[in-house]
């Protein structure tokens, strides 16, 4: 068990090192795209509120970037893995291909972390706003952990589904884009029971925790934390169910693509 885990970790660190230029390119492009949009969004912010607008926009875009990164780097890798014929190779050696795919969290986390730091430095130098400063860093961290867990579950679910059916890349991107809308909606703007319903939407509750962490103003804290735990648990269980289902389907029917011989 431990040796399999070590092999997966080793594989992804090795790949990260071998394709370092590729990952640097990915990180740079991520930073530039995010910067392009943040600069445009901040054009709307009055100068006196630039500080808070900058920090809010920064965290919304960072959350989106994590979700996007986990769904694309983790979820979309299955296609590549199938085309290389690696599914069969791992199955006959008794290693779940999903465990290998899950290891993609290593490059996706490194890219997300470095991109976040780089964007923070750039925004700090342009607007002189320390976007990493927060009233409650712990709340931001908790919110980010939930976002990572949920997006990873989502990525694994996509990977499982792509075993049986083709998933259009464009629609994944469009769906990820729509998540921004979810991240920006403020729970404070809605009254119960609508606000409770909103917290049930994936990513909303953790993003609410992050907003509390930025401003230091608590609003529906217990509800947001509870919903974060509930929704994350449901998403993890769903991902596990889909993974197990896909694995047994694979063993019965084989891989639908022709692997490299």
């Amino acid at each position: 068990m431990l040796s399999k885990f070590k092999a997966v970790v080793w594989l992804h660190f090795l790949r990260f090192w071998r394709y370092r230029l590729s990952f640097i390119g990915l990180m740079l492009s991520e930073v530039l795209w995010i910067l392009l949009f943040i600069l445009a969004i901040l054009l709307f912010a009055p100068k006196e509120y630039l500080d808070i607008a900058c920090r809010n926009a920064f965290w919304v875009v960072i959350c989106w970037s994590i979700i996007q990164m986990n769904s694309m780097i983790v979820g979309s890798w299955m296609n590549f893995f199938i085309s290389l014929g690696m599914i069969e190779e791992h199955l006959i050696r008794g290693i779940s291909p999903f465990r290998v795919i899950l290891g993609r969290i290593i490059p996706s986390s490194i890219v997300s972390l470095l991109s976040t730091l780089l964007i923070a430095i750039v925004l700090n130098s342009i607007f002189e706003v320390n976007v990493l400063s927060a009233r409650s860093p712990l709340l931001i961290l908790v919110g980010l952990v939930f976002i990572v867990v949920k997006s990873l579950s989502y990525g694994l679910s996509i990977a499982s589904l792509s075993i049986r059916t083709g998933i259009p890349h464009h629609f994944l991107e469009i769906l990820n884009f729509m998540v921004i809308g979810i991240l920006t909606i403020s729970v404070e703007s809605l009254r119960p029971p609508l606000s409770y319903l909103l917290l049930l939407v994936p990513y909303t509750a953790p993003s609410q925790l992050i907003k509390m962490g930025i401003s230091g103003r608590e609003y529906m804290f217990t509800e947001s934390l509870t919903m974060s735990v509930v929704v994350a648990t449901v998403m993890v269980l769903m991902a596990l169910y889909l993974v197990n289902h896909a694995k047994s389907w694979l063993l019965r029917n084989g891989v639908r693509a022709i692997g490299r011989m």
Binding site: F37, A40, I41, L42, L43, F44, A45, P46, K47, Y49, A53, N56, A57, V60, F177, I180, G181, T184
Partner: peptide
């Protein structure tokens, strides 16, 4: 939608014109 939506959320059209 992303740019205009988030822009309106974090600011206003009048601030945009001023900037």
């Amino acid at each position: 939608g992303l740019v205009v939506g988030m822009g309106f959320l974090f600011g206003s059209p009048s601030a945009f014109k001023r900037n």
